[in-house]
């Protein structure tokens, strides 16, 4: 029966996609400018920073953990990348390499603290965030210097067929990770570890290694988000990562992931990131005050969690 097939398919799509469509329709009614191709491109461009970071955050949440150190990783990436690059194209590979090594170290330490050290993820990554922000302050002594190289800026600011290249990076990363999580053994291990770590361990899943790899993935993607953001702004800024600590978690949660682990999807997080960015963009255009923006965001987080709890009977969603 075609109808049941459609219903089955619809059941697999996270409700957040419907929310994105509804919010976009509302936004277009309030400001027709939201429909302009430039504005669509603009939203994708800005959503890409949050999107890449939230993609990594999804893995941390799937594992039943959380990664609060993404803010520190973004800030440190921005500071280190600009200071190593010094506005020169030759130094781009070195800057990326240094950031990659740093972020891998951060993720591995987070993972070891959580698994071997048995530190609660919220504490381990919060402590790491504090260390990273402090390190950025010590490294710069409060006076950040350097700039993104011209070729590096093009990496994020360029357009391919009208689509911002940072958005293409984001979608490519998210889709690749979605494939890994759904179709590979590693992916199944991640879901199994998050759903019930003990049971997974009994079944022979290398829980410790999977968790460490998951945190490394989270901080590496936060680093990539930080690089894209750096390419967009071009300058170092000590406060640049701050907004992403909470918004990355919000994007994953409105995408339907459970904070208890084992449930959620990277594809739904794409919609979550678009939803949050769209909401901010709409409140910017619709003259909503910053205070009201915070209230709306808070209400939506609570509402979406309530909604997903009610829908939980709907079973496993894959998109």
């Amino acid at each position: 029966m075609a109808w049941t097939r459609i219903r089955k398919l619809a059941g697999q799509v996270a409700p957040i996609w419907l929310a994105v469509i509804l919010l976009y329709a509302l936004a277009a009614m309030i400001s027709p400018a939201m429909l302009k191709p430039e504005q669509v491109a603009n939203i994708l461009q800005v959503a890409a920073f949050l999107g890449v970071i939230a993609t990594g955050q999804t893995v941390a949440l799937l594992l039943g953990g959380i990664d609060l150190s993404v803010a520190g990783v973004v800030t440190l990436t921005n500071i280190v990348a600009t200071s190593v690059m010094l506005g020169s194209n030759d130094r781009i590979p070195l800057a990326i390499l240094v950031c990659l090594v740093l972020s891998l170290m951060v993720g591995i330490v987070n993972g070891v603290l959580v698994t071997v050290g048995r530190v609660a993820p919220i504490i381990a990554t919060l402590a790491m965030n504090s260390v990273l922000f402090g390190a950025a302050l010590i490294y710069t002594d409060g006076s950040p210097y350097g700039a993104a190289a011209p070729a590096f800026k093009a990496l994020a600011e360029g357009r391919i067929a009208g689509v911002p290249s940072s958005a293409i990076w984001w979608l490519a990363i998210a889709l690749a990770l979605a494939y890994v999580l759904r179709r590979t053994t590693f992916g199944r291990w991640v879901y199994a570890t998050g759903a019930n770590g003990r049971a997974a361990y009994m079944m022979g899943v290398p829980v410790v290694a999977v968790t460490i790899a998951g945190y490394a993935l989270s901080s590496t993607l936060a680093m990539v988000g930080g690089l894209l953001l750096t390419a967009y702004i071009g300058n170092p800024s000590l406060g640049i990562g701050n907004p992403y600590m909470l918004s990355s978690i919000v994007a994953v949660v409105v995408g339907g992931a459970a904070l208890t682990g084992g449930q959620g999807s990277v594809i739904a997080t794409i919609a979550g990131a678009i939803f949050i960015t769209l909401l901010t963009s709409l409140t910017n255009i619709a003259q909503v005050s910053t205070g009201a923006q915070f209230v709306i965001q808070g209400v939506l987080i609570a509402a979406s969690v309530l909604l997903y709890r009610t829908l939980e009977i709907g079973g496993q969603r894959t998109m």
């Binding site: 400001s31 400018a33 939201m34 302009k36 430039e38 504005q39 603009n42 461009q45 800005v46 953001l229 967009y232 702004i233 800024s237 640049i240 907004p243 901010t280 963009s281 910017n284 255009i285």
Partner: peptide, 13 residues
């Protein structure tokens, strides 16, 4: 960074 992101929205509107 904050101002640039907000301004991009305002320019569209």
């Amino acid at each position: 960074d904050r101002a640039k992101i907000i301004m991009a929205d305002l320019l569209a509107a």
